[in-house]
Design a binder for these strands. Structure first.
Lengths: 140, 140
DNA sequence: GTTCCTGCAAAAGGTTTGCAAGTAC
DNA sequence: GTACTTGCAAACCTTTTGCAGGAAC
């Protein structure tokens, strides 16, 4: 699923830096939908001088060139996903993790909305909220 | 669509104050999904001493007792909606307004998700992004 | 060599908190 | 009279910005 970041950055006139590659590779190799700070902490051991500001600036570029989508599942901070396909997310209200909902086909729903609104639709986000299996087990 | 706030507040052990009533009535009478600051500004002429902090504290209570739902359509701030039914929202990426998507039945989609995930689902939010008719007209 | 990028620190913007005075009941 | 609420100001947290030094090309 990992795309050629180097080519895509160059193509749009952005420079290719180790920081940008590291951030993208980290995102592309996780399913945890990390926030900027999580990415920062994860990369800290390998890039001890990297700053949070660089993470934010890089995310903006990656979003602009279509390599990353930005999520906000009702938390205080944004999360980032290198899987830019249209897929719903679910957040556990107990432990806070955000996961992909796999195997859901939302195409019909989107088509339905496109047909019934005068807006020109360019994107969508579906968020579900609940309790994950692990947290259900812990409570009961 | 306006519910009996007074009774619902008392019922949960919260006191009924003019500020709380004003905030709920303002929310219940608009379709604009205002942020805390928009509510604050709107009430300013009538309640010149009300503080932003009161708006936030009230929203938290109103959400807790199920009179308000909190939205985050990918903006910097949260928005509030006194219509707590499950309905999708759409944000115009050009002018920034957030509207309800009317006449969309998302029940089948939700059922589908509930069937295919091990999570216990307690809520959901659907956000669409695009260009509203007015902004489309302005550009072309 | 030029242009763009990084990292730092400071600023900004939205939201929360602590607390003394005030209000609901 | 008690318990909760308000409004203010300060604190907090995430994100953005300005800028000097540094890296990509």
């Amino acid at each position: 699923m990992e795309l050629n970041v180097t080519a895509m950055l160059r193509d749009k006139g952005f420079k290719v830096t180790p920081q940008r590659l590291a951030i993208y590779h980290m995102l592309a190799s996780t399913k945890s939908h990390p926030s900027a700070e999580m990415v920062f902490n994860e990369l800290q051991p390998v890039y001890p001088t990297m700053s949070l500001a660089t993470v934010y600036k890089t995310m903006e570029i990656l979003e602009e060139i279509g390599l990353v989508q930005v999520l906000n599942a009702g938390e205080d901070s944004f999360r980032y996903d290198a899987n830019t396909s249209c897929h719903p997310h679910i957040r556990c209200l107990c432990c806070g993790k955000v996961e992909d909902l796999e195997g859901i086909n939302s195409e019909a729903f989107v088509k339905n909305v496109e047909k019934s609104t005068p807006y020109r639709i360019t994107g969508q986000q579906f968020y579900f909220y609940g309790t994950c299996p692990k947290c259900q087990a812990n409570v009961s």
